[in-house]
């Protein structure tokens, strides 16, 4: 029984490390700063939480520190990515060319001006127009 829980914890840790690897791969392949923030932060948060959960299943008597670490990563990582995205948009780093809508900018984009409608219809027209 104890052996089974340890093997389940090791497999959960392996899945978490796979998510960490995929997040780093997205950091290489994404075309834009904002896409890199998305890929890097979300996958890394899930991977770190799964890895620490697996370590906590292997060593059941370490649960206090591991719960503190999981809650800390869950709270702090989205805050840092949000603040970084705001700073990147403030200093004017350009978006990629395939961006559909930019809700933070002052002047609307050309595609939105031409359609003269709100963002939802622009998104659906972009998807089904051709």
């Amino acid at each position: 029984m104890n052996q089974t829980i340890e093997i389940i914890g090791a497999i959960v840790t392996l899945i978490g490390s796979l998510f960490l690897f995929l997040g780093a791969l997205g950091l290489i392949r994404m075309p834009d700063v904002y896409n890199r923030i998305q890929a890097g932060t979300k996958a890394t948060t899930l991977g770190t939480m799964l890895s620490l959960l697996g370590i906590g299943l292997i060593h059941l008597d370490w649960y206090g520190k591991i719960i503190v670490l999981i809650i800390f990563v869950l709270v702090s990582n989205p805050i840092s990515s949000h603040v970084l995205a705001g700073a990147a948009h403030y200093i004017g780093i350009p978006l990629t060319r395939r961006t559909v809508i930019d809700k933070l900018s002052d002047k609307p984009m050309i595609r939105v001006q031409k359609e003269n409608s709100n963002s939802e219809t622009v998104l659906t027209d972009e998807k089904t127009g051709k």
Partner: peptide, 20 residues
Amino acid sequence: IDRVIALDVMTVSSIALIGM
């Protein structure tokens, strides 16, 4: 900003590494 994101991802991956 790219370098700051890379540093952030590196640190959060290192937390899992230190756990292992």
